[in-house]
Amino acid sequence: MIFVQILVNGLVLGSLYACIAAGFSLVWGVLNVINLMHGSFIVLGAYLALGLYLSIGLAPWWSLAVAAVLFFGIGYLIQRFLINRVIAAPVLLSLTLTFGLDLIIQNAMLYVFKADYRSLKLDPALGSLAFGSVVVPVDRLIAMIFALLLTLALYIVLRKSRVGRAIVAVRVDQGAARLLGVNIPSIYAIAFGIGTAMAASAGTLLALTFPIAPVASYAFLGKAFVVCVLGGLGSVPGAVLGGLLLGLVETFGAYALGPEFAVMLSFGLLILFLVVRPQGILGRWGFE
C-alpha cells in the first residue's frame, strides 16, 4: 500500500511540476529565451494568493484567474520592451538580461515580503480524503486538479486559438510565419505573457502546498529546467510527461534513498538526459 501512497504523492507533485514547466517550456521553445525570472514569477503568484486570502479571503484557486490576467500583462510588457531587443543576439545576452531582471525582482520581493518562509493555511482546513490506507490532503488534490486544468487550457489555446496557432507557426518556421503576415515581435510578447501567466498561476496553487519565500524561486526554476529537458521542449504534452516523471522519480527516490537525495537525483537525471537524449522523451528539439 505504501507503493500506491508514494505513487499518488508523486502524481500530485508531478502535476504541479508540469504546470510550472509548461510556460517555461513555451518561452524556451518559441522564443529561444531561457527565462531566469520564471521562478520569481511563481513565487510572486504565491504571494498574490497569500495576500488575497489574508485580505479578502479569496481562495487560492480563484486568485489564479487574477494572477493569470495580471501577469500576462507584466510578461507582455517585459518581452515587448526589454527582451525583444536582444532576441536576435547570442544566447548569452538574453540569459544575462533575464538574470539581471530577476535580481531586481528578487530584491524587491525581499524588501516587501522579507526573507522568511510563510505558508497559506486555509481556515477551516480542508482535511484529507482516505481511500483505504492511501491518504490525500484535499488542498493538494485541488491544487493538482487546477494545475492539470491550467495545463490543459494552455494546450487548447495553442491548438485551437488563432493566437495559439500563430505561436506554434513561429516555433516551427519563423520565416514562413513572417511571410504569412504574422507579427513576430507581437507573438513573442504574447508567448512570453502566457509563460509568465502560467508561472504566476502555478504559484497561486503552490501556495497551498509549499511554504513560500523569495529564495524558493530557485528551486522552482530548477524543476522547470529538469522537466523541460526530460519531456522535450516547447510542447505541452512534453511538460506534462516530464513533470509527472520528475514527480515520481523524486518521491520514489526520496523513499528509497532518503529525502536528501531527491535533488541530486533530479539533477543527475537532467545531465543523463542531456547527454543521452537531449531532445527529451517526446523527441522535440528546442533551440540550441
Binding site: L82, R85, V86, A89, L93, T96, L97, F99, G100, L101, D102, L103, I104, Q106, N107, A108, L110, Y111
Partner: peptide, 18 residues
C-alpha cells in the same frame, strides 16, 4: 537595494553596451 541596483546595471549593460 544592492542586488536590485546590480540587476539594473546588468540590464543596462546588456541593452546598451552589449
Amino acid at each position: 537595494f544592492s542586488s536590485g541596483i546590480i540587476g539594473l546595471t546588468v540590464v543596462g549593460l546588456v541593452l546598451f553596451l552589449p
